[in-house]
Design a protein around this nucleic acid. Structure first.
Lengths: 344, 344
DNA sequence: TTGTAAGCGTTATCAA
DNA sequence: TTGATAACGCTTACAA
């Protein structure tokens, strides 16, 4: 063997009595090469018996592929975002890419982390799970170095974007409440500056407009967290009159909304109906099993990965994409019902 | 510039009118080298103006460090496991390592994914978040290739292991119920074969033993999922008499437990008290706000990373470790209380 | 104080 | 059908 370390291609070639050149071609099953069957055997036996493992760095250094994709996520404390991550990760793994994980905040705040992450040759591309719009600098740095695909950003950005139909989701939620007879529907949005939240708000507004209820729109901002959901409810409860329906822009926030309602002894759905965007495992287990509009989050992550991989592999692609299959879907549970009878 | 691609060290050296050797030393701040201040400036200016980014692959190929750590996790659909991931990831990032993410099941099932992940030179070490004991083959393959640290495995394994004090956690839960006056306490365990669950069960048994209640032990198995928690409750409800206290080995399972109890109209905590291992954001929002024993999961992940990094960097380390700071901590909410008065 | 040159493990281009 | 050999971009003795 060589000098102690793990066996190299040369060790294999030497063992098989051939040059490293054919060893390389044989082991990579290069279709353009015709070797004697017997030689091929010898090489493969040698590789086998030496326990040869190709050195991925050396390979990528020579070729141009790292075989790795960067997943820049945010808010991994929310199961919603983890779903997107899982979808993207699975699709990358399927296609033979390993994935590097990073948090958007970390990279944006700490230049040395950003550099370590984007170090040349390490990544073939990056999926940036954004949505705040505060990350132009981050996107700039990334796309200067490798192809990037955005998830959930607006489409005025400098990279292709993949999205679910946020507006359709809230529209569906509004329709559901409208059909039940609600006319006073408040939307509990995400944080100011979130493009995702803005799109959902737009769906809410236009659905009310279409029902000639455009003057009844009412939006309260939260910040995606459960606590902020509780605060939003407390704010609403301080008003002289309550809405009969609540649409919450995010399932985690909705968990807080339900708790605050319980704390205030407001009956759901008898006094007020609640519906949220995003389905997740915990919704059936909240204080009232929560009705939701399911959005295909794993599919979203997977679509972003597909788009990126197509780009990397030189297939055209690189268009913005809407995930419409499956589309937003109503998951009925126990938190919505008819509005309370009107007090004259 | 060179041939179109991004600038290399040689380009920088050329631009600065020096050799690539000093360029390298200057840019890496090699302490053993004394360069004229003016030269150092010229090199750094050149690097700056060319937008030079070191090629991490070439660097690792030459040196021996990849600057990357593999995080092999399982069950990312549970926030509990995501907490461990977050802790490990943060600690790695802090120390300048990027992280490669993989799912244990994927690697165990698909050899080509395992090979891609462990490809030589890509990783400096791996954290394996295990707990099932089914993964000996996986651990074998990994530790044959790089240093590994286990999370939550038993300590008879072939790699150092980092753990929280599972037994102490259930002991604390038992004590809490005992103090409230409970004597019939059922433990809803994780799946058969889970070492984590076994350790928790042991803490439960020995705590009851110490209270001379060793003959009252009662264990029902679930599988970490919320659904299995519901099933466990249904099984218990079929019995002629009910326990007064339930200790659930996992917070996600506990969510299902509470829902099943609600569905069966069993009052918590009036008819039955419930306490779970693991605190998480959703516990306050369940049908009854759930009392829990908090375990330091992020610290667990971080400790695993620290241990691994120490090993990689050649500091001694590599001992099994218990995370005892902070230790298991009782988080009181509304799901535990005195047992119902005994029917004579 | 700076430059030369030899690798690190592959792959690709020739030539044999 | 196979073998030399030159890159890929960087680090590091060693030499000047």
């Amino acid at each position: 063997m060589n000098s102690g370390g793990p066996p190299t291609l040369r060790d294999v070639a030497h063992e098989a009595g051939v040059s490293s050149a054919i060893a390389s071609r044989v082991l990579n099953a290069d279709p353009h090469v015709r070797v004697r069957e017997e030689t091929r055997q010898r090489i493969q036996d040698a590789a086998q018996s030496l326990g040869y493992v190709p050195h991925s760095l050396a390979r990528s250094l020579r070729g141009a592929r790292a075989g790795a994709i960067g997943l820049v996520m945010h808010g991994l404390d929310s199961p919603i975002n983890v779903d997107v991550l899982a979808g993207a990760h699975a699709r990358c793994a399927q296609s033979g890419y390993v994935t590097l994980l990073a948090e958007a905040e970390d990279l944006a705040e700490d230049d040395s982390r950003l550099r370590a992450f984007l170090a040349r040759g390490r990544l073939d591309g990056v999926i940036l799970h954004s949505g705040y719009g505060h990350d132009d600098r981050l996107l700039d740095a990334i796309s200067r170095s490798v192809p990037a695909v955005l998830v959930n950003a607006d489409d005025d950005r400098e990279a292709p974007t993949v999205r679910v139909d946020d507006a359709a989701a809230t529209t569906l939620a509004v329709s559901h409440l409208l059909e039940l007879g609600h006319r006073e529907i408040t939307f509990i949005a995400g944080p100011h500056g979130s493009q995702t939240s803005d799109r959902r708000e737009q769906g809410y507004r236009s659905a009310l407009d279409r029902a000639d209820l455009g003057d009844r729109t009412d939006v309260v901002h939260a910040d995606w967290s459960a606590d902020s959901g509780m605060q939003a409810v407390q704010e609403i409860l301080r008003r002289p009159s309550l809405p009969t329906g609540l649409i919450v822009a995010n399932a985690v926030t909705a968990a807080g909304v339900l708790s605050a309602l319980r704390d205030a002894a407001v009956q759901v759905p008898d006094s007020i109906s609640v519906i949220t965007i995003h389905d997740s495992w915990f919704l059936p287990h909240l204080s009232v099993a929560l009705t939701a509009v399911r959005l295909p989050l794993q599919a979203l992550g997977a679509a972003a990965a597909t788009l990126l991989i197509d780009t990397i592999d030189g297939r055209d692609a690189a268009q913005d994409a809407f995930i419409t299959d499956p589309g937003p879907e109503l998951v009925l549970r126990k938190s919505t019902g008819s509005p309370p009878a009107r007090r004259a």
